[in-house]
Simulated assay, not measured.
Amino acid sequence: MKDVIIIGSGPGGMTAALYASRSDLSVLVIERGAPGGQLMNTADVENYPGVGLVTGPDLAMSMYENSSNFGAEHAYGNVISIEDHGAVKKVICDDATYEAKAVIIASGSDHRKIGIPGEEEYSGRGVSYCAVCDGAFFKDRHLVVIGGGDSAVEEGLYLTQFASRVTIVHRRDELRAQKILQERAFKNEKIDFQWNKVPVAIEGDDVKVQSVQLKDTQTGEVENFLADGVFIYIGLDPLTEFAKDLSITNEEGWIQTNNHMETRLPGIYAIGDVRDTVLRQIATAVGDGSIAGQEVYKYITSLED
């Protein structure tokens, strides 16, 4: 029996572990991969206060080491469900079951799939959702980036250090990314744009990607656009399937909380990218984690009164 179980080890989860363990609570962090969450898929971080320019994996490792300073333990596992038994919460994984007085859900989100022909077939063979992971495999190749937000533009810029050309495909006629990112993209000689276009199929030779079928959103015309790889950044989906029976999510799967990071169930909290919130950044996840780490201490103390 632990005081608190934290599901997920991204920036929010690691911060919650730091705050909770520093309050002398027994903490178990359950993670399904390397600590860091989306940080592990981020090339450069330049908007985290006090750090300056740093790679995502380097920042993740620093946070991980700091989060363990006060005794937080870590276990690997894939969480299947959570059972709320009042003063006891059960976290059921595919190979073990853990118990705690409180649970903090910091499971984050995953890149949204388009759902077009060829996307799944060529995943890992030219279709990717992680420029940091796969960019180096496309040296001197022509790449397509799908999306118009911060992630699409940031990762498109990152890919230019490998690719001969990067084409950003966006369904509108202007980007949604921050202005500073747009300016960098427009100035980069390796980046061009396909405006008012959406992908409708990804095609290849059964071994690797060769082209993308792009549909004009205004005329309906479809063209075959040659490309060696497709990187997709069209949004995020919450990783909350294990919490569906708790009735703490909205229709899209995001977990709803108050300003104390509390869900509607006492002793169950949610933080970071998994929350129904207006901004999903490292800084906001860290803020959420610090609040939850303090609030869970208050909650557990109240159980002992």
Rank of each mutant, 00 (worst) to 15 (best):
Y158D: 14
L159K: 13
T160S: 13
Q161W: 02
F162Q: 13
F162Y: 15
A163D: 11
S164R: 15
S164F: 09
R165M: 09
V166A: 11
V166Y: 08
T167H: 07
I168A: 11
I168D: 10
V169N: 01
R171G: 12
R171N: 04
R172S: 12
D173P: 04
D173W: 02
E174L: 04
E174K: 15
E174G: 06
L175A: 05
L175N: 07
K179Y: 03
Q182H: 01
Q182D: 01
R184P: 03
R184T: 04
R184W: 01
A185I: 08
A185C: 10
K187W: 00
K187M: 06
N188W: 06
N188G: 05
E189V: 07
I191E: 06
D192L: 00
F193K: 02
Q194A: 15
N196F: 00
K197D: 04
K197A: 15
V198E: 14
V198I: 15
P199D: 05
V200K: 14
V200H: 10
V200Q: 11
V200L: 09
E203R: 07
G204K: 11
G204N: 10
V207S: 13
V207I: 14
K208H: 13
V209N: 12
Q210L: 13
Q210M: 14
V212D: 02
V212S: 11
V212Y: 01
Q213D: 07
Q213A: 12
L214W: 10
K215M: 08
D216C: 09
T217K: 05
G220I: 11
G220M: 10
G220L: 10
G220N: 12
N224E: 10
N224L: 08
F225P: 01
F225Q: 07
L226D: 11
A227K: 06
G229W: 06
V230L: 02
F231E: 04
I232C: 01
I232L: 02
I234M: 00
L236N: 07
L236F: 11
P238F: 06
L239I: 12
L239T: 13
T240C: 07
E241N: 08
E241T: 11
F242K: 12
F242W: 14
A243V: 11
K244F: 03
L246R: 12
G253T: 06
W254Q: 07
W254L: 09
I255T: 08
I255A: 04
T257C: 05
N258R: 08
M261W: 01
T263Y: 04
T263Q: 04
R264S: 15
R264F: 00
L265A: 02
L265R: 09
L265C: 02
P266W: 00
G267F: 03
G267L: 03
G267P: 08
G267I: 06
I268V: 14
A270M: 01
A270Y: 01
